[in-house]
């Protein structure tokens, strides 16, 4: 290419040839006046600003598009009905003593899947089975959906049609029966079916930090989801939906995931030594160079911050002190997402 400047490399070439020294050179500030910055120009603790757009799809019951930097994710939520007669080992939920029963988990009512094979990055091409990363992401999202108890299961239950909506003659009969047995309404309201939520996440563009973006998309899509009001019709023995009325799901809380990667100055660090940097919201280049990643899931209601989950993979750098620092970063990220949703 260039003959005159053959001894110096352009920064793009440098980053391709030897990414680790390139990122290190960027982070190690040459003089004390300029703060150390990452290759993408962000400060180590600085995350990318999220942009969220909801209900842009017409065939899904709820949908969201989340973009953070160059990572773009689409999530579509679709409800389908599952009859309780089709559930093996079905037990009727009892709200008074239903502590042991977890319907969403036991009957598999939430089906999240994350698809990376859309050509969103050069190493994710279709035509092959889901990669390890895609499988891990799906499982992590699945377990977080259940462990955070985000969804209120009562909104997914489908009952028999209430007496008030039955025809006049039937109502008359029922009124007479009610005189005989006072609390017949409780047995009347047996759960006949459940909504199963198929939560499909598609990556349009992938530039690091897939979990945070995918989780934010799922959260925004679930907030946007409006299921049609459904009831069990005993005459036709099927679940029918009313075309007009749509009910939103009831969500408890607003958990937000924040991922940070640990970049060590030495490529193969020995235990307990060496310089390191905490990079919040890593991009694709940084993810490839960091062994240790931490994900914190927090919810910050007015009462105070709640930590819903911490996971730490690989490496030994992050200890309790750093974890506290990361929780602070997670709180500011929570505010970013909260603002982006509203």
């Amino acid at each position: 290419m260039a003959t005159s400047s053959s001894l110096t490399l352009s920064s793009a070439t440098f980053s391709k040839l030897s990414p680790h020294p390139y990122l290190l050179a960027n982070l190690q500030a040459s003089d004390s006046s300029s703060p150390s910055a990452r290759t993408n120009g962000r400060l180590p603790q600085q995350a990318r600003q999220p942009y969220i757009n909801t209900s842009s799809l017409s065939h899904a019951h709820g949908s969201a598009v989340v973009r953070t930097g160059d990572t773009t994710v689409i999530c579509g939520v679709r409800g389908e009905t599952l009859l309780t007669s089709a559930v093996p080992n079905y037990r009727a939920p009892d709200d008074s003593s239903g502590a042991t029963l977890n319907e969403a988990r036991d009957y598999d009512l939430l089906v999240p899947n994350i698809e990376l094979a859309t050509g969103c990055a050069p190493n994710f091409l279709p035509g092959v089975p889901p990669t390890t990363l895609a499988q891990t992401l799906s499982t992590r999202v699945y377990s977080l959906l259940h462990s955070s108890k985000l969804l209120n299961v009562s909104g997914l239950r489908i009952y028999q049609k209430d007496g008030s909506e039955l025809s006049g003659r039937q109502r008359g009969n029922e009124a007479m029966e009610e005189d005989d047995e006072g609390d017949s309404t409780i047995t009347e309201r047996a759960v006949k079916a459940y909504w199963v939520l198929y939560i499909d996440v598609l990556f349009i563009s992938f530039d690091g930090n897939p979990f945070d973006a995918a989780w934010a998309a799922i959260l925004a899509a679930l907030q946007d989801t409006k299921l049609p009001q459904a009831y069990w019709d005993p005459d036709r023995e099927m679940v029918l939906c009313s075309p007009k009325k749509r009910l939103p799901l009831t969500l408890s809380g607003f958990p937000v995931a924040t991922t940070a990667a640990v970049f060590t100055a030495k490529e193969k660090p020995k235990k307990g030594g060496g310089q390191y940097w905490i990079l919040v919201d890593p991009d694709r280049l940084e993810e490839g160079l960091c062994d240790e990643t931490v994900t914190i899931v927090v919810d910050c209601p007015k009462e105070g911050t709640k930590v819903l989950g911490i996971s730490n993979h690989g490496g030994t750098v992050v200890g309790p002190v750093l974890m506290k620092e990361l929780a602070k970063a997670a709180e500011s990220r929570w505010n970013d997402f909260r603002k982006a949703v509203s």
Binding site: G79, E80, T81, L82, L83, A86, V87, P88, Y107, D108, L109, V111, P112, N113, P129, P130, Q135, S138, T139, Y142, V196, Y198, P228, A230, D233, M238, V239, L240, C241, S242, P243, K244
Partner: peptide, 21 residues
């Protein structure tokens, strides 16, 4: 086995009582 498949029983898409005009 590489994806999350959901419940064993068959699920059906919602059926509406009357199609809006």
């Amino acid at each position: 086995r590489r994806r999350i498949n959901g419940p064993i029983g068959a699920t059906t898409p919602p059926v509406y009582e009357a199609v809006p005009k």
